[in-house]
């Protein structure tokens, strides 16, 4: 049949996604940036020759002087070392927060979306109510009581982040569930497990992958904002937020103390957002086959 000849060679969904992701120059740029930042984060402390909390004699010295590539802060600590630790910390926090949020989101959102009815009403209304709670204020209270330990910060970020993933996954599952091919699978006699694993899951998860990327970027930013507001990490923890927040007193005289951690923060989030953006386009089935 001649009509088949027009059909291009078949790629599996994921092959196609990969090909389209790697064809996108901007997302590749994001990927390269992220890999470089992670690389610096890993090897930085070993090659700088300083410890992150080591107080040196040179206070607020400019970059590339006296063995400090990025200069030093007001206590004479090596900024390069601190920034590399900041990258580690930001990414670790963001990834843990995202994993927990996605786990909660997939479970609750999946339940609400798949079963609908009262389960959905319950979960959706709970989210509506939860959203109006002022967590920054509660965060103040918690940190006053428990101190600003790593896990308290993670918990605070999960508290404010879980419901948007839940919302999104719920919507995604609902949308896929209402599609005719899911009904078609039910009509063939497929079990609920098979329907979820073969039909709903694979089609509902791609949008989540994108959210995942944006959620990591969001958590990195939130961490900094929290630190700035005084409800996040505190000195001497070398988080990017703490460094930016600490620089505000000499912003005009020594702007590099602000700009160095600031640019790293921007580059880090930007690289992740670019990757997320490329993923969104690559995963969109409507754009399949489009060069």
């Amino acid at each position: 049949m001649s009509e088949f000849e027009q059909i291009p060679q078949s790629l599996s969904y994921w092959q196609d996604v990969r090909a389209r992701f790697f064809a996108n120059k901007i997302s590749i740029l994001g990927l390269v940036m992220l890999v470089l930042l992670i690389f610096i984060g890993i090897i930085g402390p070993f090659i700088s020759g300083w410890k992150y909390d080591e107080l040196g004699p040179d206070i607020l010295s400019a970059p590339f002087q006296k063995g400090h590539w990025f200069g030093t802060d007001d206590l004479g600590r090596d900024l390069f070392t601190r920034v590399t630790y900041g990258i580690r910390l930001s990414l670790t926090v963001a990834i843990i927060v995202t994993i927990i949020s996605v786990f909660v989101g997939v479970t609750l959102g999946g339940l609400a979306g798949y079963f609908g009815g009262w389960i959905d009403t319950l979960i959706s209304r709970f989210i509506d109510t939860w959203q109006v709670i002022p967590f920054v204020l509660i965060g103040f209270a918690i940190i006053t009581v428990f101190g600003s330990s790593f896990w308290v910060i993670v918990a605070a970020l999960v508290f404010t982040g879980w419901y948007s993933t839940t919302r999104l996954f719920r919507a995604s599952v609902m949308q896929v569930k209402s599609l005719e091919y899911v009904e078609a699978a039910r009509a063939t006699g497929a079990t609920t497990k098979r329907i979820i694993l073969r039909h709903i899951g694979p089609n509902a998860i791609p949008p989540i992958i994108v959210v995942l990327a944006f959620s990591v970027a969001g958590a990195i930013l939130s961490e900094s904002v929290y630190a700035f507001l005084g409800v996040g990490f505190r000195e001497p923890t070398p988080s990017l937020g703490v460094m930016i927040s600490g620089s505000r007193n000499f912003l005009t005289e020594k702007p590099f103390v602000f700009f160095i951690p600031g640019s790293v923060l921007v580059l880090l989030t930007l690289s992740i957002v670019l990757i997320g953006d490329g993923l969104r386009d690559a995963l969109d089935p409507k754009l399949r086959g489009v060069k």
């Binding site: 005719e180 091919y181 078609a184 063939t188 006699g189 073969r198 089609n203 089935p285």
Partner: peptide, 18 residues
């Protein structure tokens, strides 16, 4: 359901794209 099956209206929506 082995003995009763259905064909849907929309041939675009009724096949799993994956």
């Amino acid at each position: 359901r082995k003995d009763m099956q259905i064909v849907f209206q929309d041939p675009y929506a009724s096949l799993n794209p994956r």
